[in-house]
Design a protein around this nucleic acid. Sequence first.
DNA 1: TTCGTATTTCGTAAAATTTCGAACATTACC
DNA 2: GGTAATGTTCGAAATTTTACGAAATACGAA
Lengths: 111, 111
Amino acid sequence: MSYTFVRYFTNRMAETETITRNQKKIARYARAMAHPVRVYVLELLSRQNCCYSGDLSEHLPVAKSTLSQHLKELKEAGLIQGEIEAPRIRYCLNRENWKEAQELLKHFLSI
Amino acid sequence: MSYTFVRYFTNRMAETETITRNQKKIARYARAMAHPVRVYVLELLSRQNCCYSGDLSEHLPVAKSTLSQHLKELKEAGLIQGEIEAPRIRYCLNRENWKEAQELLKHFLSI
DNA sequence: TTCGTATTTCGTAAAATTTCGAACATTACC
DNA sequence: GGTAATGTTCGAAATTTTACGAAATACGAA
C-alpha cells in the first residue's frame, strides 16, 4: 500500500487547527488543477513523459505568455519541472509530488 | 467498472477543441476543491452523511457569511445540496455529481 | 404577533487569477 | 557580431475569489 508513505490526519483530526495540513495540501494541488489548460498539460505529461512549451502552444488556444504563466503555476505547485535544453525548455512531471497529489486526492475522493 | 458510465475523451481527443469537455469538468471540480474550508466540508460530508451550517461554523475559523459563501460555491459546482429543515439547512453531498467528480479525477490522476 | 434562532444575501474591500502584447533573455547558426 | 528560434518576464487591464459585518430572510415557539 503506497498510502503508508503519506500520513493522513483526516480521520483523527490530530492537529490543533481544525483544518489539517493535508487538507491544505489537497486544496493547493486542486488549485493547480483548477484550469482547463493546466489539466490538459498535466494529462499530456502524465501520458507522454515530457514536452516542450512550443508543442503545447501549437495546440492550445492561448497566447504563449499565457501558457508560460500556467506552466509557472504548475511549477510553483510542484507538479512539473522544466529543464533548459538548447533554446527550448523541456517540461516533465515532478514525479514525487505528482505521486503525493495522486495519493492525497485519491484518498480524499475515496473516503 | 463504474467508469463505463462516464465517457472519456482524454485518450482520443475526440473533439474539435483541443481541450475536452472532461478536462473542463475536471478543472471545474478541482476549482471547487481548491480551498481548505471546502475540502474540509467535502471530507466531512463524505464521512458523515449530512451536516448543518452551524456545526461547521462552530469548528471553522471563518465568519458565518464566509462559510455560507463557500457552501454556495460547492452547491454551484454541484457537489453538495441543501435541504431546508426547520430554521436550519441540512447540507448533504450530491452523490451523483460527487461520483462523477470521483471518477473523472481518479481517472485523471491514474493515467 | 413578536421574539429568537439559523442562515443567507448585500455591500464593500483587498488580493489573486487570467489574459494579452511588447520587451527581454538565451542559445544556435551564418 | 548579427539574426532567427524559443520562451520568459513585464506591465496593464478585466475578472474572480476571499473575506467580513450588517441587514435581510425564514420559521418555530411563546
